[in-house]
């Protein structure tokens, strides 16, 4: 029983984290058809910005410790907006409409550049921002299991972001326009939608989500070089399992991968290494478009 509760809670926490990491990636792909390898760098830079700022905040008397949560989110916003605007306006704008694979390679080059840029700014020493993680205390579940409330709060954050994205896409005018672009870019242009502005906004939102995922993870980890590269392929897997470009798909993919991994860790830790790719392989073998992907009409 304890194990079952642990599996479900661990799965839910991990799934929320996966969703946070994958959401920005899937939005950018859905609208712009750019599979953004640099998403990992957004994550890393968000984490560094947050850890450095929160570390400074707690190094002296800088006010109510609960303000640190605002700092986390603020850093993510700032880092995401700067990165998003600079990269979209400075580079991607000139490359839109190029081959999808070429764009993967362009963002891969970006990843290489940002990886060293991160090192240039923050060095290689680890950064810690553990205070926000501890501040919320722990919850006892049964007599031996304890969970950090911060992790449980992460579930709420992920649900909130998922709902917000759904609301914006389905209940606002801008969101409807965005869906029109996702559905058929050419018709949307013909109908007078300013696609370039849509792209710019989407990329910034995606970058902010990536940075936010990093910033919210920072308190639980030691922020070191290389953390960005590790999340890319994970985010890819989640997004592909769910169906590329679909927020609902990313959520479903995250839950599926999160729960499978949690099961593996508790029941058969030996196979943990394979779980994510195994799930991805099985889902694609039976549903080539992913769980929520649309089947495209064949070209004639």
């Amino acid at each position: 029983m304890t194990t079952l509760i642990a599996i479900l809670l661990d799965g839910a926490i991990y799934a929320s984290w996966l969703f946070l990491v994958a959401a920005g990636l899937t939005i950018i792909y859905g609208v712009m058809r750019v599979l953004n390898m640099a998403h990992g760098s957004f994550y890393a830079i968000g984490a560094y910005a947050a850890a450095a700022t929160v570390g400074w905040f707690f190094s002296g008397e800088h006010g109510n410790p609960y303000l640190s949560y605002l700092l986390l989110v603020g850093c993510a916003l700032l880092a995401g907006v700067i990165l998003g605007v600079v990269i979209e306006q400075g580079l991607l704008r000139f490359l839109m409409g190029r081959d999808e694979i070429l764009m993967v390679i362009v963002t891969y080059a970006l990843l290489l550049i940002l990886e060293d840029a991160t090192k240039l700014i923050w060095g290689v020493d680890p950064y810690f921002a553990y205070q926000p993680y501890r501040l919320l205390g722990i919850s006892d579940i049964g007599d031996i299991l304890r969970f950090a409330n911060y992790d449980l709060a992460l579930i709420a954050v992920a649900v909130f972001i998922g709902l917000a994205a759904w609301f914006v896409l389905n209940r606002t005018n801008k969101g409807r326009l965005l869906r029109a672009v996702i559905h058929d870019r050419e018709i949307a242009i013909a109908m007078g939608v300013n696609v370039n502005a849509m792209f710019a906004a989407t990329f910034v939102i995606g970058a902010v989500l990536g940075a936010l995922a990093g910033a919210l993870t920072a308190p639980a980890i030691s922020v070191t070089p290389g953390i960005g590269v590790e999340v890319i392929v994970l985010a890819f897997a989640v997004v592909v399992v769910g169906g590329l470009g679909s927020i609902g798909g990313a959520a479903a993919g995250a839950v599926l991968v999160g729960l499978s991994r949690s099961f593996a860790v508790h029941i058969a830790p030996e196979i943990e290494l394979f779980v994510i790719y195994g799930v991805m392989f099985l889902v694609l073998a039976f549903r080539p478009q992913g769980l929520f992907g649309q089947t495209l009409a064949r070209r004639i």
């Binding site: 970006l110 290489l112 550049i113 990886e115 060293d116």
Partner: peptide, 19 residues
Amino acid sequence: HFWQMTLGVVLLALILFLP
């Protein structure tokens, strides 16, 4: 210390100017 960045910039330039 910065070979990845160098590599990235050179390769990006090649992609941009020699598509």
